[in-house]
């Protein structure tokens, strides 16, 4: 079975986005998106785990029987997360000090189990790895957009502390959007996450509808021209 990588990429990032379409992974999403930087950090860590779990699960997909697949998948994912946690702590300590807080949260990310079940257990190794990467990218994008929205409204800054995550070369990313801003606490707290997410999902639906309607009009005009 050949995999259409282009379609797969579009699915992961837009049409079948983990958050916007599958409505998965909302727990870590709402927990960390107080700032865009935290969102980015969580996104990067999730990409690593998604790719590794997609790869591992697709390797074992023909051995695991359907009856025990869920415990096996959970076991594999938990093992990967723990190993990522230990490895980062030992050899990427500076990064770990920033991201370490988020790594254990990845286990609670049902999107990873969801992709294992829906994709990696049925597709080839390369396709599953690619799917993990694209789903992870889509998730990261969502986290950063939601984080940026909440950070700007909630604290008036954008990418605060980005230098801690990416190194001093990226300190240019740290911006104060609204100076002397007293903050809008609601958006920093989880309820603000729900509200912002609601607006983002509605926005995506509107955009999709608008694009869909345009395509429809185009096809109708084409039809009319053809018959004329």
């Amino acid at each position: 079975m050949t995999i259409d990588y282009k379609a797969n990429a579009r699915e992961g990032i837009w049409t079948n986005n983990i958050v916007f379409s599958q409505m998965l992974a909302l727990c870590p999403l709402l927990a960390v998106t107080g700032t865009a930087t935290n969102g980015l950090g969580m996104g990067i860590a999730t990409i690593v785990v998604l790719v590794a779990s997609g790869l591992t699960i697709s390797i074992f997909r023909n051995i695991v029987t359907p009856e025990i697949r869920i415990p096996v998948f959970v076991l594999i994912i938990a093992t990967i997360v723990t190993i990522v946690d230990m490895t980062m702590n030992a050899w990427m300590h500076e990064l770990y000090k920033v991201l370490g807080l988020f790594i254990p949260l990845i286990v609670t990310n049902c999107a990873i189990l969801g992709r294992a079940e829906a994709f990696a257990s049925k597709n080839s190794i390369s396709a599953s790895t690619f799917d993990g990467l694209m789903m992870g990218l889509g998730f990261t994008l969502t986290l950063v957009v939601l984080g940026a929205m909440r950070e700007i409204i909630g604290s008036g800054t954008l990418f605060a502390n980005a230098a801690l995550l990416l190194g001093d070369n990226f300190s240019f990313m740290e911006m104060t959007i609204i100076s002397d801003y007293r903050g809008f606490l609601l958006f920093v707290l989880p309820p603000g996450g729900f509200i912002a997410l609601g607006f983002l999902i509605a926005g995506k639906r509107l955009l999709d509808n608008w694009v869909g309607a345009n395509e429809e009009i185009e096809s109708i005009t084409n039809e009319i021209q053809e018959t004329a």
Partner: peptide
Amino acid sequence: QAILLGLFTLGA
């Protein structure tokens, strides 16, 4: 099933 699950646990 039990052996397989056991093996995976052992591997992990």
